[in-house]
Design a protein around this nucleic acid. Structure first.
Length: 289
DNA sequence: ATCGGTCAAGGGGCA
DNA sequence: TGCCCCTTGACCGAT
């Protein structure tokens, strides 16, 4: 079981992913930004290694505008060697890696243009992981997408589109249950038709479910992971007290986390902590396992 | 110096 | 149909 946190480290004195707006785009600035992001990733991995945090979600804006028409620069060639070196570090130490494209990646979009843009964005994510020469245990996680007032057909459209995706995407894709539209049971329908592994999100499940007990749900999702996919991934977060349902807590609630761990039984999986204070909570959680 | 609107990209809920 | 919300954090620019 590996513990991780997403994208940002508040301890390491290195700011990756600095604001980069389309208006200020230039190839020069793009190169500087990528170089800076890679340096920060290096430092964060170093921090994680020395603190035993072996699961990390890489930020999607490692290469800003990578799938946007404005980007005609071959970042793949320019930074190939650097990506390969970071990948070697990841493999040497056994880090688990995931990525999570933003909500506008919609495989089941009604608008074919949105689907096509989504594919480009997924290709970018896959290229990044391929350049690092990581195997298919490094996952790209997304949500099912929109409902469009017709969930059965939106699910069908997801499945149909999924089958058209390039293999480099399919082997890395994982689906996460969300808290508004697609529950674990909905994701399972898609899993049965595609084999796509399901990342179980604990808080989303608490907000949107079909009456399954947490422990059973965890097991159901874990069974969707094949041999090549590696250990199941789980997104854990706790509810922010007194806030709207689904809001992430500022810091980990260790009692709640212990309770969650007690539900897992014999299961093993890697846990991504989606909590505001990032590595601080991950460090506390890592002490418990 | 500070603060808040804004940023490539979408969808859902509600009035 | 139009507006605001989700969710993120940094930064741009107005004051």
């Amino acid at each position: 079981m590996k513990i991780g946190y997403p994208c940002i480290n508040r301890t390491v004195q290195c700011l990756g992913n600095k604001t980069f707006r389309l208006k200020s785009y230039s190839e020069e600035k793009l190169k500087e930004t990528i170089q800076n992001n890679l340096n920060c990733l290096d430092k964060i991995l170093e921090f994680n290694l020395s603190h035993g945090l072996m699961f990390f979600r890489m930020a999607s804006d490692m290469v800003p505008f990578a799938s946007h028409p404005v980007c005609e620069f071959s970042w793949q060639t320019e930074f190939q060697e650097k990506f390969r070196r970071i990948g070697a570090v990841i493999k040497a130490h056994g880090f688990r890696i995931s990525m999570h494209p933003d909500q506008f990646v919609l495989i089941n979009a009604k608008d074919i243009n949105i689907f096509q843009r989504s594919v480009k964005e997924l290709i970018y994510h896959a290229q990044l992981l391929d350049l690092m020469e990581l195997d298919q245990t490094a996952k790209i996680q997304i949500h099912v997408g929109g409902v469009y007032n017709d969930k059965p057909n939106s699910i069908k459209r997801f499945i149909k589109r999924y089958h058209t995706l390039d293999d480099s995407i399919k082997k890395r894709l994982a689906l996460e249950n969300d808290h508004r539209s697609y529950s674990l049971a909905d994701c399972m329908i898609i899993h049965r038709e595609t084999g796509v592994p399901i990342i179980f999100d604990t808080l989303h499940h608490q907000v949107l479910n079909n009456g399954e007990l947490m422990g059973d749900a965890l097991k159901t999702a874990a069974q969707t992971w094949g041999e090549k996919d590696g250990l199941p991934m789980v997104d854990y977060s706790s509810q922010k007290p007194d806030a709207k349902k689904g809001n992430h807590a500022l810091s980990i609630d260790l009692d709640d986390f212990s309770h969650f761990l007690s539900l897992k039984g014999e299961l093993d999986f890697d846990i991504m902590l989606e909590i505001k204070d990032k590595e601080a909570s991950a460090l506390k959680a890592a002490q418990l396992i």
